[in-house]
Design a protein around this nucleic acid. Structure first.
Length: 311
DNA sequence: ATGTCGTTCTCGGAACGA
């Protein structure tokens, strides 16, 4: 499989939204999915239904609020971390990390932070700072990494229909935006912004004030790519049709497609199948079941993406 | 402040978070 499609979707309650989730999975068939706002305890996660739909999963639930999961076609992702390092006192389920298909996937649900100022906003900034510190390590590791999730940050005024009524919102505060910039300054590529250029693109339309009907949206769901993955970005989009369905989440699934073919194809392109599934993405990758073996029709994966990347 | 959801606690409807 040369193309890897990775999506992030704040589902806003996986129990009440399961039919919508299954419908979307069937129709769009993403390879990897990061979910946020499960609003369900671990035992209520619909692992069986997802398995029946062809997806393995890892998840970190919590009663009533938060909750994150990573799904992958076929075998479940290999979890490498839950919760942010150095933030063990955090009681919210907001961060899950796993290896899938030779890529390390970080699924995050950054705190909303409203009302602002106040303790919730302080928590948002503290969480963000811990995440930035961890992201720096991930970036420096040189592994192929995607940071995907609901960042609860509108990066610029070009990422919202009109900032006027949101100026006091935590999603637009200078402190939030500054941290997002600081994160990108580590070297990450904002995939949606890179793909769409100057074009407006939204991922969230709140339930209030007919914002969906008037396309009054915000771009707060992001996918950030490590250095070696950035040149592999081949497509990106937002599955807006999901937001338009009855009983929808206030977010729409947001996705990227990565071309995982070797950057420089070997002259005769005759790599053996034995060479697939050996990409050293992370320690967890090495423990990962060789799920891609079933994809017999796929183009050989070849060596590591890093083999051609300059250091 | 408001708007509208999904959740909990409890069994109708408030409170909370977003």
């Amino acid at each position: 499989m040369a193309k890897l499609r990775i999506a992030t979707f704040n589902i806003n309650g996986i129990r009440s939204r399961l039919p919508a989730l299954l419908q979307w999975l069937e129709r769009e068939a993403p390879d990897i999915v990061c979910l946020q706002e499960l609003k369900a305890v671990d035992s209520a996660f619909p692992a069986d239904q997802l398995r029946a739909a062809g997806y393995g999963a890892v998840w970190q639930g919590q009663s009533a609020w938060n909750g994150v999961a990573i799904l992958s076609k076929g075998d479940a992702p290999v979890e490498s971390r839950r919760g942010l390092p150095g933030f063990e006192e955090d009681t919210h389920s907001r961060y899950l990390e796993a290896a899938v298909g030779g890529v390390l996937i970080a699924c995050l649900y950054l705190p909303n932070g409203n009302p602002q100022p106040g303790p919730k906003f302080d928590y948002k900034l503290a969480w963000f700072d811990h995440f930035i510190a961890h992201a720096a390590k991930l970036f420096r590791s040189g592994h192929p990494v995607v940071l995907a999730g609901d960042f609860n940050v509108v990066p610029t005024d070009e990422d919202i229909y009109n900032p006027r009524s949101w100026l006091k919102d935590a999603l637009l505060q200078p402190e939030s935006r500054e941290r997002y910039r600081k994160l990108l300054a580590q070297g990450w590529t904002d995939a949606l912004r890179t793909h769409f250029g100057d074009e407006r693109v939204y991922t969230f339309w709140d339930y209030f004030r007919r914002h969906w009907d008037t396309n009054s949206g915000l771009r707060i769901d992001h996918l950030l790519l490590s250095a070696d993955l950035a040149p592999r970005l081949s497509d990106a989009g937002v599955d807006r049709w999901v937001r338009g369905e009855p009983h929808a989440s206030d977010h729409a699934p947001t996705w990227i497609e990565l071309d995982m073919k070797p950057k420089r194809a070997p002259q005769k392109s005759t790599k053996t199948k034995k060479e697939t599934g050996q990409e050293p993405a992370a320690k967890a990758v090495q423990k990962m079941p060789a799920q891609k073996r079933v994809r017999k029709k796929s183009v050989p994966v070849g060596k590591s993406a890093r083999a051609t990347a300059s250091k």
